[in-house]
Protein backbone atom coordinates (compact mmCIF):
# COMPACT_ATOMS: atom_id res chain seq x y z
CA UNK A 1 0.00 0.00 0.00
CA UNK A 2 2.92 2.35 0.66
CA UNK A 3 3.95 2.15 -3.00
CA UNK A 4 0.45 3.30 -3.97
CA UNK A 5 0.85 6.37 -1.76
CA UNK A 6 4.41 7.06 -2.93
CA UNK A 7 3.47 6.79 -6.61
CA UNK A 8 0.32 8.88 -6.28
CA UNK A 9 2.03 11.62 -4.28
CA UNK A 10 4.77 11.60 -6.93
CA UNK A 11 2.13 12.00 -9.65
CA UNK A 12 0.53 14.90 -7.76
CA UNK A 13 3.57 16.64 -6.30
CA UNK A 14 6.05 16.53 -9.17
CA UNK A 15 6.41 19.98 -10.72
CA UNK A 16 7.14 19.24 -14.35
CA UNK A 17 4.70 21.69 -15.87
CA UNK A 18 3.61 20.86 -19.44
CA UNK A 19 5.44 17.52 -19.69
CA UNK A 20 4.02 16.42 -16.34
CA UNK A 21 0.46 17.46 -17.19
CA UNK A 22 0.55 15.74 -20.56
CA UNK A 23 1.90 12.57 -18.88
CA UNK A 24 -1.01 12.63 -16.41
CA UNK A 25 -3.61 13.45 -19.07
CA UNK A 26 -2.22 10.71 -21.34
CA UNK A 27 -2.64 8.15 -18.55
CA UNK A 28 -6.11 9.32 -17.47
CA UNK A 29 -7.44 9.42 -21.05
CA UNK A 30 -5.80 6.06 -21.82
CA UNK A 31 -7.22 4.32 -18.74
CA UNK A 32 -10.64 5.86 -19.35
CA UNK A 33 -10.66 4.72 -22.96
CA UNK A 34 -9.47 1.22 -21.98
CA UNK A 35 -12.27 0.99 -19.41
CA UNK A 36 -14.88 2.03 -21.95
CA UNK A 37 -13.36 -0.25 -24.61
CA UNK A 38 -13.73 -3.27 -22.29
CA UNK A 39 -17.40 -2.46 -21.64
CA UNK A 40 -17.95 -1.73 -25.33
CA UNK A 41 -16.49 -5.08 -26.50
CA UNK A 42 -18.79 -6.88 -24.05
CA UNK A 43 -21.95 -4.95 -25.00
CA UNK A 44 -21.23 -5.32 -28.72
CA UNK A 45 -20.74 -9.08 -28.25
CA UNK A 46 -24.36 -9.21 -27.04
CA UNK A 47 -25.52 -8.88 -30.67
CA UNK A 48 -24.49 -12.53 -30.84
CA UNK A 49 -24.79 -13.78 -27.23
CA UNK A 50 -27.86 -11.81 -26.05
CA UNK A 51 -29.57 -9.62 -28.70
CA UNK A 52 -32.25 -8.38 -26.27
CA UNK A 53 -29.56 -7.18 -23.87
CA UNK A 54 -27.86 -5.35 -26.76
CA UNK A 55 -30.96 -3.24 -27.33
CA UNK A 56 -31.00 -2.46 -23.59
CA UNK A 57 -27.35 -1.35 -23.73
CA UNK A 58 -28.03 0.88 -26.74
CA UNK A 59 -30.98 2.49 -24.92
CA UNK A 60 -28.61 3.24 -22.04
CA UNK A 61 -26.04 4.79 -24.41
CA UNK A 62 -28.79 7.02 -25.82
CA UNK A 63 -29.50 8.54 -22.38
CA UNK A 64 -28.34 12.09 -21.68
CA UNK A 65 -25.91 10.97 -18.94
CA UNK A 66 -24.12 8.54 -21.29
CA UNK A 67 -24.30 11.13 -24.07
CA UNK A 68 -22.26 13.50 -21.91
CA UNK A 69 -19.88 10.63 -21.15
CA UNK A 70 -19.56 10.03 -24.90
CA UNK A 71 -18.42 13.64 -25.41
CA UNK A 72 -15.64 13.15 -22.83
CA UNK A 73 -14.78 9.77 -24.35
CA UNK A 74 -14.26 11.45 -27.74
CA UNK A 75 -12.02 14.06 -26.06
CA UNK A 76 -10.00 11.22 -24.48
CA UNK A 77 -9.61 9.36 -27.78
CA UNK A 78 -8.56 12.56 -29.59
CA UNK A 79 -6.10 13.78 -26.94
CA UNK A 80 -4.58 10.33 -26.43
CA UNK A 81 -4.16 9.99 -30.20
CA UNK A 82 -2.64 13.42 -30.85
CA UNK A 83 -0.35 13.17 -27.81
CA UNK A 84 0.56 9.57 -28.72
CA UNK A 85 1.54 10.73 -32.21
CA UNK A 86 3.73 13.41 -30.63
CA UNK A 87 5.44 10.87 -28.36
CA UNK A 88 5.91 8.32 -31.16
CA UNK A 89 7.26 11.00 -33.50
CA UNK A 90 9.78 12.22 -30.89
CA UNK A 91 10.82 8.69 -29.87
CA UNK A 92 11.12 7.08 -33.29
CA UNK A 93 11.90 9.93 -35.70
CA UNK A 94 13.24 12.98 -33.84
CA UNK A 95 14.65 12.06 -30.39
CA UNK A 96 16.60 15.34 -30.45
CA UNK A 97 13.25 17.07 -29.73
CA UNK A 98 13.18 15.55 -26.23
CA UNK A 99 14.24 18.75 -24.48
CA UNK A 100 12.29 21.13 -22.27
CA UNK A 101 11.60 23.88 -24.80
CA UNK A 102 10.27 21.52 -27.47
CA UNK A 103 8.27 19.54 -24.92
CA UNK A 104 6.54 22.71 -23.73
CA UNK A 105 5.65 24.05 -27.18
CA UNK A 106 4.63 20.65 -28.57
CA UNK A 107 2.38 19.99 -25.55
CA UNK A 108 0.57 23.27 -26.16
CA UNK A 109 0.20 22.38 -29.84
CA UNK A 110 -1.15 18.96 -28.89
CA UNK A 111 -3.87 20.54 -26.77
CA UNK A 112 -4.71 23.06 -29.50
CA UNK A 113 -5.04 20.38 -32.20
CA UNK A 114 -7.15 18.25 -29.84
CA UNK A 115 -9.53 21.14 -29.17
CA UNK A 116 -9.84 22.00 -32.87
CA UNK A 117 -10.86 18.39 -33.57
CA UNK A 118 -13.01 18.01 -30.44
CA UNK A 119 -15.14 21.18 -30.44
CA UNK A 120 -16.99 20.50 -33.73
CA UNK A 121 -17.42 16.83 -32.74
CA UNK A 122 -18.79 17.87 -29.34
CA UNK A 123 -21.13 20.35 -31.04
CA UNK A 124 -22.63 17.61 -33.22
CA UNK A 125 -23.02 15.26 -30.23
CA UNK A 126 -24.68 18.01 -28.14
CA UNK A 127 -27.00 18.71 -31.09
CA UNK A 128 -27.91 14.99 -31.24
CA UNK A 129 -28.68 14.86 -27.52
CA UNK A 130 -30.87 17.98 -27.69
CA UNK A 131 -32.56 16.73 -30.87
CA UNK A 132 -33.32 13.16 -29.75
CA UNK A 133 -33.66 13.50 -25.96
CA UNK A 134 -35.19 16.98 -25.59
CA UNK A 135 -37.23 17.29 -28.79
CA UNK A 136 -35.35 20.39 -29.96
CA UNK A 137 -34.61 21.35 -33.63
CA UNK A 138 -37.79 19.63 -34.81
CA UNK A 139 -36.95 16.39 -32.98
Amino acid sequence: MSSLKTTLSGYAGYRGREGHYSFLLHRITGLGTALFLTIHIIDTSWVYFAPNAYQFAIDLYRSTLFGIGEIFLVFSVLFHGVNGLRIAFFDLIAPKFWQIKKTRSSTRWTLAVTLVLWIPAAGIMIYNILHHNFGMFGG
Binding site: I41, I42, T44, V47, P51
Partner: peptide, 17 residues
Protein backbone atom coordinates in the same frame (compact mmCIF):
# COMPACT_ATOMS: atom_id res chain seq x y z
CA UNK B 1 -12.32 -10.21 -23.63
CA UNK B 2 -10.63 -10.61 -27.03
CA UNK B 3 -12.22 -14.08 -27.37
CA UNK B 4 -15.68 -12.73 -26.45
CA UNK B 5 -15.39 -9.99 -29.08
CA UNK B 6 -13.91 -12.37 -31.66
CA UNK B 7 -16.67 -14.98 -31.24
CA UNK B 8 -19.34 -12.28 -31.71
CA UNK B 9 -17.57 -10.98 -34.83
CA UNK B 10 -17.56 -14.47 -36.35
CA UNK B 11 -21.04 -15.43 -35.10
CA UNK B 12 -22.73 -12.23 -36.27
CA UNK B 13 -26.08 -10.78 -35.22
CA UNK B 14 -28.52 -13.25 -33.63
CA UNK B 15 -32.33 -13.00 -33.82
CA UNK B 16 -33.85 -11.31 -30.75
CA UNK B 17 -36.49 -13.37 -28.94
Amino acid sequence: ITAIGGIALIGGVAKPS
